[in-house]
Structure formats: structure tokens, C-alpha cells
Design a protein around this nucleic acid. Sequence first.
DNA 1: TTAATAGTGTCTTTCAGACACTATTCA
DNA 2: TGAATAGTGTCTGAAAGACACTATTAA
Lengths: 235, 235
Amino acid sequence: MPTPDSNPNIIVTVDVVLFTLRDKKLHLVLMRRPNEPFAGQWALPGGYVHRLEDADSLAAALRVLRSKTGIAPPYLEQLYSFADGARDPRGWSVSLSYFALVDEAVLTNAQAAAPGFDLVEVNAVPRLSFDHNRIFEVALKRLRDKSAYSTLPCYLLSEQFTFAQVHETYEHVMGVALDKSAFRRKLAEMDVLEECKGQRVGGAHRPAQLFRVKADLANRLRLLDRPLALHSLAS
Amino acid sequence: MPTPDSNPNIIVTVDVVLFTLRDKKLHLVLMRRPNEPFAGQWALPGGYVHRLEDADSLAAALRVLRSKTGIAPPYLEQLYSFADGARDPRGWSVSLSYFALVDEAVLTNAQAAAPGFDLVEVNAVPRLSFDHNRIFEVALKRLRDKSAYSTLPCYLLSEQFTFAQVHETYEHVMGVALDKSAFRRKLAEMDVLEECKGQRVGGAHRPAQLFRVKADLANRLRLLDRPLALHSLAS
DNA sequence: TTAATAGTGTCTTTCAGACACTATTCA
DNA sequence: TGAATAGTGTCTGAAAGACACTATTAA
């Protein structure tokens, strides 16, 4: 039941943790805040929900990402909502947080077209505005956990890729070494990839088969019954 | 960056899907809405976030549950946030949704002390206000999925219980038959239960050992590396 | 001694993990 | 033919699934 205290003036924002893989390291997009509070400090791309423009929070996240980075990520999932009276100095606030994945090439192009954001390695994240460090930590954990039982890391790959690249991507995202043979079996059984008949070299060795995500997959996310190996040590 | 459209007047509520197990069936708490919109219709227990009273959204969920049902559930987890311009006729709104579990005895006592809510079997949920049917569906899926790889269903048990009760609870929550022997092995390996030296009868048969959740577990939620069996058919 | 439920033992199948082996290219 | 990476075959051990078997009680 409404009370005088009820509700007006709660701040509602969306914030997005956008990951990519660059130089075999997981990175995320950060930018300097243009306005107070925390003007000039690092933050996740984010902004107010616009009641008139945004049909829902997913649309708000897409709009914010488009306006701040020019990117429309192939994967965007609601992460968690951080909502309390202390995270924003302006008052009680809600951050509807999302996490997203993109191919590095897309990100590099976007950055050339519209600078204004940076890529930071996940092990070198600076102090961020608000509670964005916490949001980032939750996103990283979710990405790693979910990668163990899904095809999530495929969203970090470009159109065509070799088996070795998929393998590497999983290893770098999860931070563990995965047996090549066992991983191949799993990947085959997931049945998300198809061969491209083109080959590829890489130097003085047997050329690798190129793959792509199956065209008939509306969505390349597949969940596994059992997680991938977690026993091996970090590579 | 703030715009004229920015933010004021977005409605922020918490809604809780509170589950329990009664008569071997999963139930949830519903109540009739006292006010417009949807006055008199079924809805999840929920209410506005109160900026001055609620430190954060978890506190808001606890307050709402306490005030509407008198219950302080042993398990309460953020489920998802439903946020769009269409779910509430009053305007753009956010539902910070939670799901919770309680022992049926607690619920029955609470209901005796403060009527005003009902228990409804999950297969007989009526049409609910707002998008509460969808919230309920997401909560049910989360409960079932998570039960397969955690000790979540233990929160539905009373202080002491037999192995058969734990087994039954898992089966009813997940909606599948679980092999007794395999389940016992898993449960032992999870290492969350300890024997109570009291026995218990049930009629003309060998009495069952009573168990309780280990006292030294701050929290009875344990996650498994691998999910429980999902092959058997519904019981 | 039988009915009923509690609880154990064990065989089979599946699959991850390890790792050796073959294949194909360029220099 | 050797170096390098691609890709396959197969053995082993751990754990799930199935299910039969023993245990203990009251009537």
C-alpha cells in the first residue's frame, strides 16, 4: 500500500559491463564520467532510463550502449539489480545492470568511429564510480561460471574462426587450461558449429579448418547438462 | 547524461515469490490486492520501496514480506528485475523481484497469526495482477533449475527430517524421480546433514534416522559441480 | 511371518582426463 | 626431413543410473 514515503525520486539507471577478448586477455569497456557525481572518474557505460524512449530495461541498455559506444552487442543479458540508498550520492537508486559480449573487431571499429571509451584488462580495473567495481565483479563471475556450461564464449568470436581460437577463447575466459581432445568432443556434441570449406594457414604447418556458428541457430547460446572441466590449473 | 525525460516518476516496487511444500506439492503465497490498480485481484506479495525505511532492495523485500505475511524466510534471493512501461497501468515501473523458501510449518503458523494471504498450488495459479504470472514462472524455473545443482530444497524442510523427506522434497520440487541410492550418495557427499540420535517411526516398519542441517553451516546452500540426474521421468 | 519402509552393495554405462599418436603444411 | 600446429584414438578412473539385496520395525 502506498505511503507518503512511497516512491517518487528513486533514480533508475542501466549500466552495462561489456566484455571482449583482446590480445588473449579479457577486457571491458570503461569511460570517464562527463558529469557529476564522480565527474572525470572511470565508470561503466550507463545512464538514466528514459521513460518515453525506452520500452523496457533491455531497450534502455541497448540505447545507452549505442549512444555511448555505437555498439549493438550480439549478446546482452540482465545481470543483477543493485538498489540501495547509498550507492549514489544523489539518493536512493536502482542500477539495472546488464552484461554483454562482443567480438573485438567490432569494438575496435566502434572505437575508431566514436572514441570516448576505453578497453581495460579485467585484471587491471581501476577504482570506478558508484558501486561499479562490485557490478563488474559480479559480471565477471557470471561470465566465467556460465562459460563452463554454455556456448557463451562464442559471442566473443568473429564470424569465422579455427578450433584453436574457440579453445583459446574458453581458456582465457575461464582462466583454466582445457584438454584439447576432451574440449573437441564437447564442442562437437554441443553441435553449434559448422565447417567453412575455406582453410587457413598460419605458417609452416597444417592449415586449420575454419568454423562458423551454425546459421540456423537463432541464438548461439546452448546450455550443457554438465559443466566443462574445472580441474586443470590456470594456463 | 540527464535529460528532461530522465527519470522522476518511475515506480519502484519489490515483489516476492514465496514457495513452500504442502501435501507433497509445491505452493506459493498469493494475496488479494487491497488497492487499485487490480484491486481485489490475486497478486504476489509486494509493495513500494520506501526510500527512508529500506536500506536496500533486500531489506525492502524483507519488510514487505514481514508486513504482509509476518514471515522472515530463511532463504531469500534476488530473482530478476522486470522493468518496462507497460506492466503497470500507472506508468513506467520496476519490479525488483525476489524468490523465497520456507518450511510449511512456519507458513501455517504465520497464516494462523495473520490471515490475509493464501497458499496456492503451483499448477493451479490463477491469473495474477500486473505481470506477476511471468514473475512466478521465472521464479519456478529458477527454483527447479537451481535445485538440480544445490541444496536449495533443504530450505523447505523443518528442523528435523528423515532421508525420505529430503528425497521426496527434491522430487516434488524438481518434478522428477530420483534414484534413492544415487541420491543418498550425493547427499552424503554434499556433507550438509548430520544425524540426530533420535529415531522416528512411521508405522509397522524400520524407523528412519532423523537428520538436521549441520549446525556449523552459516548457510545451508551448497552448490554442486554437477547437477543431479535429470533423466528420470516425472513421478 | 508378513508387510512396509529404511538403508546398502554392486554391476553397468557413460564420460571426463590424460596423453600418445597420426596428419599436413612450409621451409 | 624436420619443425610446427591440426586433429584423432584410446586407455583409465570416477561417478551416475539401475536395481537387487539386506535390515528393522509393528502387527
